[in-house]
Design a binder for these strands. Sequence first.
DNA 1: GAGGTGACTGCGA
DNA 2: CTCGCAGCCACCT
Length: 123
Amino acid sequence: MSHSAEKSTGKSAESFTFFENVYDIVRLIPHGKVTSYGAIAKYLGSPSAARMVGWAMNSSHALVPPIPAHRVLNRLGLLTGKYHFGSEERMKELLQAEGIPIENNQVVDFQRYFWDPSLELNL
DNA sequence: GAGGTGACTGCGA
DNA sequence: CTCGCAGCCACCT
């Protein structure tokens, strides 16, 4: 167990920086608001690590409390991750249910509903 | 141990 | 205007 166990245990402490922060921020997104992968990545100190944010969302399905991943879109307000919700229209309906208009797989007036973590959290 | 992939983004040709 | 590439970090094979 030494070899295998060490790997997980040793890295746990440092792994919390990025992934856990992503989940935490997404959970802080207010109802009826949305944000982008880049905004979260930038808040974490790596503006180019937007890919990692999306990757974190990939694992968010089993997390509790559930992560409102439908509030996380790309910088264009496009529902790029809709295919990961089981149904393509699932993400759209979730957003519309919060009062966010969607048209052609894109948020109408995206900037109006945009929620910037570095802005709202005021750091 | 090493290589490839990915729900992104910005810049260059 | 469109197309392509590099950077980022963790997970999977």
